[in-house]
Amino acid sequence: MSSDKPPILDIRGLRKKFGDAEVLRGIDLSVQAQELVFVIGPSGSGKSTLLRCCNRLEEPSDGSIRIDGADIMARSTDVNAMRRQIGMVFQSFNLYPHLTALRNVTLALAKVLGKPRAEAERIGMAALDRVGLAARGRAYPGELSGGQQQRVAIARALALEPKIMLFDEPTSALDPELVGSVLAVMRDLKRGGMTMLVVSHEMRFARDAADRVIFMDHGAIVEEGPPQRMFSAPSQARTLAFIAELTR
């Protein structure tokens, strides 16, 4: 990764408190263009909160977050304009059940970007095609498998041509046999040069697709490194214990 370019995502001193509980205790993290960064850690370590702070679904308590150089915490920031540059994929898909797969993808294109219907549908179909679901555009979410729903959710984020995609445990809610299709799409995105920050415990995927793995515990980054080293020879005892637990 060339470090002379500014990172796509640059987080400095990020803190988040819920009441008295400090969930994030000073996170520094940057993600370079086209990099795939994996975040692992025990539940309650703050991984999801970290992700959700990146598009201000959670409001950070302190620190700075820059997307492609722009301070998303600035008063002048248009939150909605900022968010469409950041694709987000949720554990529970969160597709709109009353709209077809295609309309799920085109809603923001039409209502946020004001694209005419024909153009929105062309872009939407292209996005569905990228996740291998061009044929299911007219299906409602209830008619799709979990893996297909998650791929539609990826297409929904992708259609807005985001600068970075955030994945919050994208395969945790899926039956084991459906996980592969979602990971295949993510691998494809990576090949296409998408910048990605992924919270997940899919170790095999991390091993062959991630550029870097970050281990978080108790709201802080414990250590980070390339996947091979992180999974076979981590330097911190806590990381070792967690990875031993995962691969048991």
Partner: peptide, 30 residues
């Protein structure tokens, strides 16, 4: 209507009112 519906819509840049009108109300009215 689950919180995830709001979050999904807001994360694509839809504002509060647009989310209410296009995502939440159609389901709530049903």
């Amino acid at each position: 209507i689950p919180k995830g519906q709001w979050e999904a819509a807001r994360s694509t840049g839809l504002g509060f009112l647009a989310t209410l009108v296009h995502v939440v109300l159609p389901q709530a009215i049903r």
